[in-house]
């Protein structure tokens, strides 16, 4: 195309992204703003529906400014609009220090909210063909549509508005998609169960063979006491389709 044609297209696109008035050849008076409004509405709606908790956490003008600066300064890369909000996280991390200082839980909250969308929508993963026969003597076969989040703020436990720096700590949250209902679930994990789950996920070893490891890590040496500690957690995971039986 001719340079002038490309330039006019670029001017319109830039105007839609930043809303700064522009002269474009041959446009009808008073009509251009409709494009900015329609385009920006799509972006703001996608962000708001993906991050409802963040939307509630921020002041109204902070959210509006964030949406505007994100769309203006960042070149959205994903052709699928529902995936585009993922790009907001990196943008906030890199360019919104004022917000992350004011809201130390913000980045983790964004991740938490995005993971819910991602897990709900993610392509179906191949489940293990083998079953978990017993909590102690056979390796746990886990739902592959899962991961453990390591958090420094309890965004999975508390309303983000009531989280402050004093809540800073070590938190673990299991996220998984239930295979029968397709619902996305979050489960708060103690450090012990987070470690245990990570360990069984990364190996094909039964708990009975991990006695020494567990003893070293958590100073629990009685296998029967250990089994009784683990059983309710195991049963919950089985009931929720997180452990395949």
């Amino acid at each position: 195309m001719k340079d002038q044609t490309i330039e006019q297209q670029q001017l319109l696109a830039a105007y839609c992204r930043n809303g700064v008035d522009v002269e474009i050849l041959g446009t009808t008076d008073g009509r251009l703003h409709n494009y900015r409004r329609l385009v920006f509405n799509v972006v703001r709606d996608a962000l708001s529906s993906t991050y409802p908790l963040t939307y509630n956490l921020l002041e109204i003008n902070e959210w509006e400014d964030l949406c505007k600066s994100f769309f203006s300064d960042h070149k959205c890369q994903d052709p699928q609009v529902w995936r585009m909000p993922f790009e907001l996280i990196k943008y906030v991390q890199e360019f919104k220090v004022d917000l992350t200082k004011k809201y130390p839980q913000l980045i983790e909250l964004l991740h938490f909210e995005w993971l819910e969308v991602e897990y709900y929508m993610m392509p179906d993963q191949k489940f293990p063909e083998e079953k978990t026969k017993d909590l102690w003597t056979s390796p746990w076969q886990l739902n592959p549509e899962s991961e453990i989040m390591h958090l420094t703020y309890p965004v999975h436990l508390k309303n983000a508005r009531f989280i402050s720096r004093s809540d800073q700590g070590m938190y673990f949250c299991l996220i998984y998609r239930q295979p029968d209902t397709f619902k996305v679930k979050f489960l708060n994990l103690s450090p012990f169960f987070a470690w245990l789950l990570s360990r069984v996920k990364d190996s094909s070893v039964a708990l009975s063979e991990m006695g020494q490891e567990i003893e070293d890590a958590f100073n629990i040496s009685d296998p029967e006491a250990l089994k009784e500690n683990i059983r309710p957690f195991f049963e919950k995971l089985v009931a929720d389709g997180m452990v395949v039986t």
């Binding site: 195309m1 001719k2 044609t5 006019q8 297209q9 670029q10 319109l12 696109a13 830039a14 839609c16 992204r17 041959g26 494009y35 329609l38 385009v39 799509v42 972006v43 996608a46 960042h74 070149k75 959205c76 890369q77 994903d78 052709p79 609009v81 585009m84």
Partner: peptide
Amino acid sequence: SYSKCDNAHLYDLLPIPFRQDAVDH
């Protein structure tokens, strides 16, 4: 129409200039 420009998606439909070079393109 076009919905991406300068390596940025816009997620809506912008009008193409009605021009011969745009027809060719």
